[in-house]
C-alpha cells in the first residue's frame, strides 16, 4: 500500500488519545491496523499505548481491543485466538478475524517474554508487535533490557561513577527467531510502505509473526517533538536499526545504503546520549559497524565478536 492510500484509509486508531505531542506510536499503530482489510482483534500490554488510548469512558480504538495486565498480552491473545478457532468451528463466528498483540519493549522483552515465548511455541496465529521505545516510558523512563547501551535513564542515570546503561540491548529478534516462526521483521515508521508491507505479510502469515518497530519517545529520548520521523529514519540510515525480514528462516536486509551515516548523527539529537564522549560514541559506532558487516553478508545467526 502506498503512503497516499494509507493516509486516506479510515483510521482504526483515532485522535483524542493522550500520547505526548510528537510520540511515535500513534502512526505505527494506525499503519499496522490499516495494512489489512480483515477484522483485527487487539491485545495490548500495560504501558504508554494502553494508558493514553483507553481512559474510561473514552477509547481511541475502533477495533475490538483488550488490555489485561503488563506481562500477558501474548497469553491473552492466545486465549482470544483459541476461542475464535472453537467458535468458528461451532459456526458461532462466521467472518475471518486477524489478531494483533502489541507491547512496549518492557511488556514484550522483559515481563512479557515468557508469555510471548509460550504463545509463539504453541503457534497461536497472531501478529506480535514490539513498539520499541527503549525504556519503561509509562512509569517515567526506567531502563528495560531493550534500552540501548549507555542510555541515560532514571534507573541508569549518568553520575560520577556510572555512565548510563552499561549493558548491551537484548536481541529480542533473535530470541523470537529461535522459535522458528514463519515471519519476522524489523521496521521503522520513516519507511511507511515498508512497515505496511511487512504488517500485511504478517497478517497473511499462517502461524505466528513478529514485527519489531522502533518508536522515538519525546520525554524518554529527550528529543524535540518534531523529530520522531527524522530519528526513525536516521536510526535506519546509520545502521543502528537495520530494516530486515526473516521469511521462513530466510534473512533479507530491506534497506542497504551505499554508505551508512555516522551513528553520531542519530545520537546527537537525543538528550539520553548527551553525556557521551568521543570514545563512547566510537564504541557504539564500532558495534554498529560490526553488526552491519554481519547482516550485509546475510549472517543473522553467526557468533558475534565486538
Amino acid at each position: 500500500m502506498n503512503i497516499k492510500e494509507l493516509g486516506y484509509k479510515d483510521t482504526k486508531f483515532v485522535s483524542g488519545h493522550r500520547a505526548c505531542a510528537g510520540c511515535g506510536f500513534p502512526q505505527i499503530v494506525r499503519t499496522i491496523l490499516n495494512s489489512t482489510d480483515k477484522r483485527v482483534v487487539v491485545a495490548n500490554a500495560t504501558g504508554c499505548l494502553e494508558v493514553v488510548s483507553t481512559i474510561y469512558p473514552f477509547s481511541s480504538w475502533k477495533v475490538p481491543y483488550m488490555h489485561s495486565v503488563f506481562g500477558n498480552a501474548s497469553s491473552t491473545i492466545s486465549g482470544i485466538e483459541s476461542a475464535y478457532k472453537v467458535l468458528k468451528k461451532k459456526n458461532k463466528i462466521k467472518n475471518d478475524i486477524k489478531f494483533l498483540a502489541i507491547m512496549g519493549d518492557g511488556g514484550c522483552s522483559d515481563i512479557g517474554l515468557q508469555s510471548l515465548s509460550g504463545a509463539l511455541e504453541r503457534g497461536h496465529e497472531c501478529v506480535y508487535v514490539q513498539y520499541a521505545n527503549g525504556a519503561y516510558q509509562n512509569t517515567g523512563v526506567q531502563r528495560s533490557s531493550e534500552t540501548p547501551l549507555l542510555s541515560n535513564t532514571t534507573t541508569t542515570p549518568v553520575g560520577k561513577v556510572h555512565r548510563g546503561k552499561e549493558e548491551m540491548k537484548k536481541d529480542i529478534v533473535k530470541i523470537v527467531a529461535a522459535h522458528n516462526i514463519p515471519y519476522i521483521a524489523q521496521a521503522s515508521m520513516a519507511f511507511p510502505e515498508d512497515l505496511s508491507e511487512k504488517a500485511k505479510k504478517a497478517f497473511e502469515t499462517k502461524g505466528p509473526s513478529f514485527i519489531n518497530v522502533i518508536q522515538p519517545c519525546v520525554p524518554g529520548w529527550k528529543i524535540d517533538t518534531s523529530i520522531n520521523i527524522k530519528l526513525s529514519r536516521l536510526a535506519v540510515e546509520t545502521g543502528a536499526w537495520p530494516l530486515f525480514e526473516i521469511e521462513n528462516g530466510k534473512f533479507k536486509l530491506n534497506y542497504v545504503p551505499e554508505k551508512l551515516k555516522p551513528v553520531k548523527e542519530y545520537l546527537k539529537l537525543q538528550g539520553r546520549f548527551k553525556h557521551l564522549n568521543n570514545k563512547e560514541i566510537e564504541r557504539i559506532q564500532k558495534i554498529v559497524n560490526k553488526e552491519w558487516e554481519y547482516l550485509k553478508k546475510g549472517d543473522f545467526w553467526g557468533a558475534r565478536e565486538y
Partner: peptide
C-alpha cells in the same frame, strides 16, 4: 491450551472469556 505457566493459564482464560467462550 497447554500454557507455559499459570499466569498465562489465567491470562488465556481472560482472553478467551472476553472473546465469548
Amino acid at each position: 491450551i497447554r500454557v507455559e505457566s499459570e499466569h498465562s493459564a489465567m491470562s488465556a482464560c481472560v482472553g478467551a472469556s472476553a472473546a465469548g467462550a
